[in-house]
Simulated assay, not measured.
Amino acid sequence: MDRQTIENVVKACNVDTSEGPVDARLQQVVVRLVTDFYQAIEDLDLSQSEVWKGVEALIDMAKADEFALLGSAIGLEHFLDLRADEADAKAGLTGGTPRTIEGPLYVAGAPESTGFARMDDGTEEGKIPTLIIEGKVTDTDGEVLPGAKVEMWHANSNGNYSYFDKTQSHFNLRRTILTDENGNYTAQTTMPVGYGLNPEGPLQHMLNKLSRHGQRPAHVHYFISAPGHRKLTTQFNIEGDKYLWDDFAFGTREGLVATAVDVTDEAEIARRGLKGPFKHIQFDVVLQKDKAGAPSTEVERRRASA
């Protein structure tokens, strides 16, 4: 079939006003996406078996709770970030900490404090190094932002996230910190580790056929927001990780690589109230100011809430 014939078939199936009001935007999107899908079937000469096996793979991913990860694996989230970067540039917005993917593992409602928070529940103390993360939140003019909201979350030593991993306590390794009067925040936590997809799961099965791994480097996720400034979704990935620049989710970007420094000084250990050496990461954040007519940085998507 040629393109026009395909489009006619799609419209005959999906453009109908006899049942009541129509969501014109949804209809436009459905017609375009379905037309492109059918065109791909035609161009690639997909058999019926291939089409249904593809549908079954998506169903299997949904049943395995891996469907949300598919968007990361095929680069969808990364692509949307690149589009957002282009839109910002067209609006004359420059500077600030780079954005990167959110991922599907945020949980709303983490405990909130000002200046400092301990993120871990202590169950892995002695099993994995303590990490102190510090940073300052400023705007692109260098002005500090007191009261900025810094939401942070990361995986435990097994590569699992609380809420989704029922063996962890509520909000383990999840906190919201409001910056102090100098725009600073400090988090005491554990060293995050990289993690991978279930090697026996349907998403990894698909990636295997593409000769791709399903591993992520060690990282910490962030939402940062402040009145009069554009919300930032970002994360830092940790220098030295094998998968730093080979992230299956394409989350590593220039400007978002952090170095974990070993701290062994006894006086500094005592000042922190710790029992032994720890690791330290400095991650400062620069937010862009709001601008009339600028593309929104608020993303509406389904998120968990404990």
Rank of each mutant, 00 (worst) to 15 (best):
P104Q: 03
P104S: 04
L105H: 13
Y106T: 04
Y106S: 12
Y106C: 02
V107S: 04
A108G: 05
P111R: 09
E112A: 12
S113Y: 01
S113C: 08
T114A: 06
G115S: 10
F116M: 03
R118F: 01
R118I: 02
M119P: 09
D120N: 15
D121T: 13
E124G: 07
E125R: 05
G126T: 02
I132Y: 01
I132K: 10
E134F: 14
E134I: 11
G135C: 03
G135F: 02
T138F: 01
T138S: 13
T138V: 10
G142D: 02
L145R: 00
P146K: 00
A148V: 04
K149E: 13
K149N: 06
E151P: 03
M152C: 15
M152K: 11
W153Y: 14
H154F: 15
N156C: 14
S157G: 05
S162Y: 03
F164M: 11
F164I: 14
F164K: 10
T167P: 06
Q168P: 12
S169R: 08
S169V: 04
H170G: 03
H170W: 03
F171T: 03
L173P: 08
T176Y: 01
T176C: 14
T176L: 14
I177K: 09
L178E: 12
T179E: 00
D180M: 06
N182Y: 07
N182E: 15
G183I: 00
N184W: 05
T186A: 10
A187Y: 07
Q188D: 14
M191S: 10
P192D: 03
V193Q: 11
V193A: 14
G194K: 07
Y195G: 15
L197V: 04
E200A: 12
G201M: 14
L203A: 06
Q204D: 03
H205P: 01
M206R: 06
M206Q: 10
L207A: 10
L207M: 11
N208M: 08
K209P: 00
K209H: 13
S211Q: 07
R212G: 03
H213V: 14
H213R: 11
H213N: 12
G214R: 02
G214Y: 10
P217F: 00
H219I: 00
V220D: 04
V220P: 01
S225P: 00
P227L: 05
K231L: 06
L232M: 12
F236L: 09
F236Y: 13
N237G: 11
E239L: 07
Y243Q: 10
